[in-house]
Design a protein around this nucleic acid. Structure first.
Lengths: 194, 194
DNA sequence: ACCTGAACACCGTTCAAGT
DNA sequence: ACCTGAACACCGTTCAAGT
């Protein structure tokens, strides 16, 4: 008897996330996770079939949080304001969770056939597509979303990896790029550039 | 006596690049490199002080090639045409060298204080900045470059990781995003959207 | 049902010893 | 000068054995 669980699925994911954020992906070993959780490494394999599996679960958690943050920023009446605030929320989340954020876009070709991961990703894009559909029409919304998300992710990827090396104000660069794209996408219906 | 070199600095970098492109970063171990080069692993450490060091060198090679490809695409008379062709060259290079391309933006916080790496990166951006300076004025050029490069890198990062999952024509999405941004940056002086 | 120690194959890296 | 075998600490993962 005995053999009562010393931890939980969610507990392991949380510890993994913490180790990742604190010391990067190299700090996230199954042995370190097991240690922090108070268990031996082999026990982790009862709950996650591999390290990839655990990373995928962490990515899922991160995506859900990112989606929630971005959706909270939607403004009821203005598409421009919504997109501006969603973009700010997106950037704030990425800067607060840099390692987890980068996991979403990098290590995940594994997850292509993972149903739940796919669903979370689609949900995360839904709010953006809805707003752009209303503002640009359904046929252009997907093109607009891809333009906007590409800019956002590219900007964050460069900012987090400290690849903006010519000096200048990074916040201004973000505002400039975002307003350039939003004005172009929303046309004269949107707010004009300040 | 004997002990003549069985390989060279450049030979090792080329093999590493090949292993990386063929089987991803997991395929690029010091033992695999040594094996492919016809030497034992410890010998590699005479030329590269660590695996990171080798990866950094591979990244440098990649950056130089990327810079050369993009610069070849410059058009003598039209800023719009130059930027359009440079963007196409950038995308073509990334799709032809997906793993090496991703290395540039991911694994490289190590290289922040590496002089030569820094220089290569600055040079790679110089052509773009020059063209935008002529078209937008010097004060706006850096902002415009950051907008454009963010879009390009974000788009490629998503495309290479197969994260465009709503269907639709990816080439059309690239053309749409690029022309949206170029028209907005270059104003009525540029070519109008098709 | 869950946990464990022991073991396996594989890493990156160091170093004394060879030619 | 360059290469090598042996060794170290660490990793992901498996599995038979414990309670």
């Amino acid at each position: 008897m005995s053999a009562r669980p010393k931890t939980s699925d969610a507990g392991i994911r949380a510890v993994a996330r913490k180790l990742l954020e604190e010391g990067g992906i190299d700090n996230l070993s199954m042995l370190a996770v097991a240690d922090a959780v108070g268990v031996r490494a082999p026990s982790l394999y009862k709950r996650f079939s591999s390290k990839s599996d655990l990373l995928l679960a962490v990515t899922g958690d991160t995506l859900l949080e990112l989606q929630a943050s971005v959706e909270k920023a939607v403004h009821p009446r203005s598409a421009y304001r919504s997109l501006e605030r969603m973009a700010a929320a997106y950037r704030a989340f990425a800067k607060k969770n840099p390692r987890a954020y980068q996991l979403i876009f990098e290590d995940i070709p594994l997850s292509l056939d993972d149903r739940s991961d796919r669903d979370v990703r689609l949900a995360a894009a839904a709010a953006l597509l809805r707003i752009l559909s209303e503002a640009m029409g359904e046929e252009k919304a997907l093109l607009g979303a891809r333009t906007l998300v590409s800019f956002l992710h590219g900007f964050l990827s460069m900012e987090l990896n400290e690849l903006f090396r010519f000096g200048g104000d990074i916040n201004e660069a973000f505002r400039f790029g975002l307003s350039t794209i939003l004005n172009a996408l929303l046309g004269s219906g949107g707010r004009t550039r300040r």
